[in-house]
């Protein structure tokens, strides 16, 4: 009932007719065309510059970035980042083989719904250079909350997964939007106490990205 009431009130205030087919056509053609607006020039440069831009922006947002030439020792790279100590790793990686057999202090755990985690390691849908944002997408393999329930989050990203602009994501997802797409630009933070930034509000306190060259 309120639906009709609200829609009628909108049409009355706009002085338009619900039977007016031309209005519907205007909207339908705008949606069908989904034209981009101005895309910042920084999004359109050579791919190697985009990789650099991604790193620069992610570091500015307090994420850390490490670049490696190949995927031969990703386990070692991850352990180099974590440093000494014993860790519980929860791994959700499809694209790469991770080998931690050389590290006796490392345990791996399975993801279960509604539970907190120590170190989360994942790959991701992609990344956008313009603001140094990872693109995480929920899927059969990837529960969204996996990315938020660890103390630290380590993400493996292939260089060729880095796109320029947000619009590049939609070109690949529009027709079959996953339940969730999240742009992650740095670790979780809050400025709610005296406007000073603290990390690890609710999500990961640290975000580390390993970019793997091609």
């Amino acid at each position: 009932m309120s639906r009709t009431e609200i829609l009628d009130r909108i049409r009355k205030k706009l002085a338009v007719d619900s039977e007016d087919k031309t209005r519907l056509q205007v909207v339908e053609s705008r949606l069908a065309n989904h034209l981009p607006n101005t895309i910042p020039s920084r999004c359109r440069q050579s791919h190697s510059d985009l990789v650099d831009l991604f790193q620069e922006k992610m570091e500015k947002a307090h994420g850390t970035v490490n670049r490696v030439n190949n995927d031969t020792d990703l386990g070692g790279e991850i352990m180099a980042y974590l440093g000494d100590g014993s860790f519980e790793l929860c791994i959700n990686v499809l694209e790469f083989e991770l080998d931690f057999s050389a590290y006796s202090s490392v345990q791996t755990v399975e993801w279960t719904p509604r539970s907190s985690l120590d170190i989360c390691i994942s790959d991701c849908f992609g990344a956008v250079a313009e603001t140094g944002s990872l693109v995480i997408s929920s899927s059969k393999q990837m529960p969204l909350s996996f990315n938020f329930l660890g103390e630290k989050h380590i993400v493996l990203l292939k260089e060729d997964q880095i796109m320029g602009a947000y619009e590049d994501i939609w070109a690949r997802t529009r027709n079959d939007m996953p339940r969730d797409i999240t742009l992650v630009s740095g670790p979780s933070c809050t400025g709610d106490i005296e406007m000073i930034m603290e990390f690890g509000a609710h999500g990961p306190k640290e975000l580390h990205i390993i970019i793997i060259g091609s």
Partner: peptide, 11 residues
């Protein structure tokens, strides 16, 4: 330039 998290939720 952007907030830490921007989520697009569909259904």
């Amino acid at each position: 330039e952007i907030s830490a998290y921007t989520s697009f939720i569909t259904g």
